[in-house]
């Protein structure tokens, strides 16, 4: 499984986002990272370097903060995010089978992104909706009582939507 290639980063766009924050304001780092991720869906290395320059802090500091928070991603993420709940309730009700099938159908491992950057597949330990298990979350929308039978249709509809 080769990792998805990072697309070229629009430097002008990065600079435009950075210009919304005062230069040299180290305290704005997390806000800057949020804004960058909202634009690129992940934090490109080039963007982080420009952010360090703009905020006048070291690249190491920026990298330390970006890697500290689970919510920031340093690898390209898909247009759609498909999350399988692997909590105990979902687990005993078949979540591993769903994950297996998704990995097979999308040809991507959990935590990975398809090479065409259409879908990122990930797992979560529990979202507290145990009564709905096994639970699949697609782009923030919860699909409860998911079965391997209903899965292909759902995946297809998501991917088609992605192409339109």
């Amino acid at each position: 499984m080769t990792p998805a290639a990072a697309p070229a980063v629009d430097t002008a766009k990065v600079k435009e986002i950075l210009s919304r924050h005062p230069a040299g304001d180290a305290g704005a780092l997390v806000n800057v990272l949020h804004d960058l991720q909202a634009e690129f869906r992940y934090l490109p290395e080039e963007a982080l370097k420009l952010a360090a320059e703009h905020l006048q802090i070291s690249q190491a500091q920026v990298f330390g903060v970006a890697t500290f928070y689970e919510g920031f991603h340093l690898k390209p993420r898909g247009k759609h995010v498909c999350t399988v709940c692997m909590g105990t309730a979902c687990h005993v009700r078949g979540a591993p089978k769903l994950l297996d099938q998704l990995e097979r159908d999308l040809k991507v491992r959990a935590g990975g992104t398809t090479p065409d950057l259409s879908v990122t597949l990930e797992t979560v330990n529990c979202v507290g909706a145990c009564a709905l298990g096994p639970l699949l979350i697609v782009d923030g929308e919860y699909h409860g009582n998911m079965t391997t039978g209903r899965l292909p249709k759902l995946v297809d509809s998501v991917l088609k939507e992605g192409k339109s």
Partner: peptide, 14 residues
């Protein structure tokens, strides 16, 4: 490293 002005290192991840 930061005090010496090199700023080459950070705590990475959590």
């Amino acid at each position: 490293c930061a005090a010496l002005g090199h700023n080459a290192l950070a705590a990475v991840g959590r």
